[in-house]
Design a protein around this nucleic acid. Structure first.
Lengths: 188, 188, 188, 188
DNA sequence: AATGAATGAGAATTCATTCAT
DNA sequence: TATGAATGAATTCTCATTCAT
């Protein structure tokens, strides 16, 4: 059964939640999110059963959006390092031009409200990335450790790199490269 | 001169908060923390002015404890790599044998309740670690990036390594080493 | 368009507050007021932002009600003394037949919760009374003192007269007259 | 059984309470009063069983002080009007030079915490004033009304007069006289 | 007697969720 | 389906009073 009701409104709520979470945190009232979305507080609950539900769907949405951005124009034919750098650059672009989504996603990632099932679902939306990481792991000295290790490292280095890029935009491109080199060294 | 405010009780509250935060998150009611500490809810506020105050002090306490553990028996005379590995190992020990403190600290680290002043104070309690990271940075290919980059990388790799160690205790020692190698490669 | 915020409910809360204040004073819990009004404690706050707000609005409402009662059927054509006696009688009627409102108003009048802005607003609702007092002052030996003096005297004599009337209802009419004569003498 | 403990400390608490009530109202915490008095919060309760008890005793003390001041150097031989003016002047002096006591007393007078028994006791401390008022009443046109009427009128006019005197100190003496004349007219 | 920590019953709000319109 | 008022459990913090020292 496809989603009922207006898909537009659903998106509006999700967007509003993103913005509100940035300034107020995850404990932001649903009423505030509804107002930001231009609907009544009651309506919010016709689109999301509970606040926790809203948060979980937002997590998936954001993660999927990020993965899609990272995989845009993926160079299937290139060698691994080139492919990874392509993804890395896309990621940096997404993060620096969507600071609100990035911030909300970071908060959701560490929240206990996000269920394991949600994390799994979000993971699945970025199958392309997972494949890539699997190949990265198989390639270097990390053959022995779990896949999540590679993901965690990449995520952490990416986050930190984006922070630096935002703080010093003039040298953004350089920082992007340095971050990548660091990552590549780590996983080699 | 009446009962003196007991340092024991302060610690009991902090310990209780640590335990409660692990299971209930930072939004755990102060009443729950008080009960866990074996005191009345009112008493909590004779030791900590507000809940936010309690959280901030806990953050400092935990961070200081972690840093102290990491720096235990620091080999002043050794070469850099040995020193870093020593700290790394200590850190892994602390994290794997104090999972609750580690979890609470992780949650506090990303909380907006923790003020910049607190973060600074906590940072100062681990001056030894800062020095070490400064030397790490000066040493390798990260000369150009801010110090926080090194810290963020180390923290992320450490966290992930600890997760792996806990999930696969039989090979803990090996995972500890692999994690370190990865880190060393990254910052070299 | 959902249930509209009902004016009835607002009045019910104000009435309930009046009753509760008489027996419990201004420190009466909002929960008690809500229960007396037949609504949930949460609902009280959809009609009044804070307890202080409720108190301030109640003050205005009561004062306005009293002034309206005092000015009912005002004899514009009569001479001053007749007019004042008319108002005085109306006031006595209002006070003796609305003992709860009178008691609550007395308590609110001396409360520090009532802001100067509220006092001003309440004052404006009784412009007719102010005019009258101004004419009283201009008329007699009180030309030299501030207007508030006349108001304070009238209020005090009125309050005391009402007490006597209530204590000795058989002679209420006589007491009403004696009170008025006393006032008239004072301001002559 | 005479009062135990230090009479000095008792007075210190009462004085402190007076000061604190002026700025914080009757809901001022006992802890604040204790600190202002330079003692521990616990000690306060060795001098006064409960907060209500403290308030009631303070009321009596203040009222007695006021009455004593009003009756100072009472001219037994003079005619009634002279005597009343003497008392009136003393009262104005007391009120204008003890604004804190006056304010605290005013607040206590309308508080529900003050019991009827206390009011009676306070009344008895000012027997001299009561006598005077009784003679005032017998003398004029108020023969028919209860004694309390005279007291209430006098109190109200006195309070208002003091306000005016404080607001316009340059003409204090004149205001004092006008206030008295008004009172005298009222009760004549 | 003096101290001040300990207690725990409130008190005013807040807010996710429900439901009448 | 949309609205926003209604609900009431839950939360932080206060404070009179007690009690160990």
């Amino acid at each position: 059964m496809a989603r009922p009701k207006s898909e537009d409104k659903r998106s509006a709520i999700l967007d509003a939640a993103t913005r509100v979470i940035v300034t107020q945190g995850l404990s932001a009232p649903t009423a505030t999110i509804a107002k930001e979305a231009g609907i009544s507080n009651g309506s919010l609950f016709t689109y999301f059963e509970t606040k926790v539900d809203l948060l979980n769907q937002l997590f998936i949405e954001l993660k999927a959006g990020m993965a899609a951005a990272a995989l845009k124009r993926f160079p299937d034919e290139s060698e691994l390092r080139k492919q990874v750098f392509h993804v890395w650059s896309n990621w940096m672009d997404w993060g620096t031009s969507n600071p609100e989504k990035r911030s909300a996603l970071a908060q959701l990632s560490v929240s206990e409200e996000i269920t394991p099932a949600t994390r799994l679902a979000a993971h699945k939306t970025s199958a392309g990335l997972t494949d890539l990481m699997e190949r990265i792991r198989a390639n270097g000295s990390l053959r022995a450790v779990p896949m999540s290790f590679v993901g965690a490292i990449m995520n952490s280095l990416a986050e930190t790199t984006m922070d630096i890029m935002i703080n010093d935009p003039a040298n953004a491109k350089k920082h992007c490269k340095v971050g990548f080199e660091t990552f590549w060294r780590a996983i080699s």
